[in-house]
């Protein structure tokens, strides 16, 4: 339970981290909170030659906003989001989701950006950011940025759309309007463990937004556009009626039991929309 030897360096800025990452490829690894990477290091499943510690990088905790969007630096912890230390542009959804991540001691160290970049498909933020239509901001050495739609960001288990040498610097989340409603349901056998299934439902008529997502847990989450369209037209009950069919079509590789679990999670998320 002791990691293999690695070198350690602190990055002073995101751009410096990106430069160190490019220089150290392919055996350098970024370290934020380390709450997923740490166990892999201790079990020697991951044996990077060098860890580049982002925690104190300048700019990683910036928060910026305009009327439509909130940009949250990647370095904020789950516990800080839970506590409201950053504004929640999703009308309480981020705080609710944050509280359900692992345990408080892990939330106090693990970060929003670290969780997204790690891309465990069972993780909460991967599903939530895709459902919200958020954008992932990637920065490379030199400081150039690009945005990646969260719904296409996770390509599979532990695989993301980040290019080699890119650092996940921030997340841009659209603000929900005051009458928006959301539902989030996670199937877990034990508090704090990784989800067995995740369902997310969003309805924001003022913005013309209706999105439903099934967290796939073993692979990238999938949006359910037919269910979302039905939700916008006819409400949560009508949408719930077609969830099983669309989940089955979107996730044909799952066993019937696994598909049923996804459908249940999505229906329960839809049910939370009732009554505002």
């Amino acid at each position: 339970m002791k990691p293999a030897a690695f070198d350690y360096v602190r990055a002073g800025s995101v751009a410096e981290a990106a430069a160190l990452l490019a220089e150290g490829a392919p055996d350098a690894r970024l370290l934020a909170g380390g709450q997923s990477l740490g166990p892999m290091l201790n079990l020697r499943l991951a044996r990077p030659a060098r860890l580049i510690d982002l925690k104190r990088a300048a700019g990683l905790r910036d928060v910026m906003a305009d009327e439509t969007t909130l940009r949250i630096g990647a370095g904020w912890t789950h516990a800080e989001i839970e506590d409201g230390a950053v504004e929640d542009p999703a009308r309480g959804m981020l705080r609710h989701v944050a509280r359900g991540i692992a345990y408080r001691a892990v939330r106090n160290r693990g970060t929003l950006g670290g969780s997204l970049a790690h891309a465990d498909p069972a993780a909460d933020w991967v599903a939530v950011m895709a459902a919200l239509g958020a954008a992932i901001v990637a920065q490379r050495a030199g400081g150039a940025e690009r945005r990646i739609a969260a719904e296409g960001f996770v390509r599979g288990a532990f695989a993301t759309a980040l290019a080699p040498g890119e650092v996940l610097a921030a997340v841009e989340i659209p603000r929900l309007s005051p009458k928006a409603r959301w539902g989030y349901h996670k199937v877990c056998r034990k508090t704090g463990e990784f989800a067995k299934a995740i369902g997310v439902a969003m309805l924001d008529p003022a913005r013309g937004m209706s999105r439903v997502l099934a967290g796939a847990v073993e692979a990238a989450p999938v949006l359910l556009p037919h269910t979302a369209a039905r939700l916008a037209e006819a409400g949560p009950d009508a949408a719930a009626a077609i969830v099983a069919e669309e989940t089955g079509a979107a996730l044909p590789h799952l066993s019937p039991a696994e598909r049923a679990l996804r459908a249940v999670a999505v229906r329960r998320a839809l049910a939370q929309l009732d009554g505002g």
């Binding site: 910026m64 909130l70 940009r71 945005r147 719904e151 759309a161």
Partner: peptide, 25 residues
Amino acid sequence: VAAREPAPLAAAPLPVAGASAPAAA
């Protein structure tokens, strides 16, 4: 806890890549 006061978000949004990446069946 008081929320951090956001700084103004720079205008001129960057293009978003892969906005409609479908979930590959």
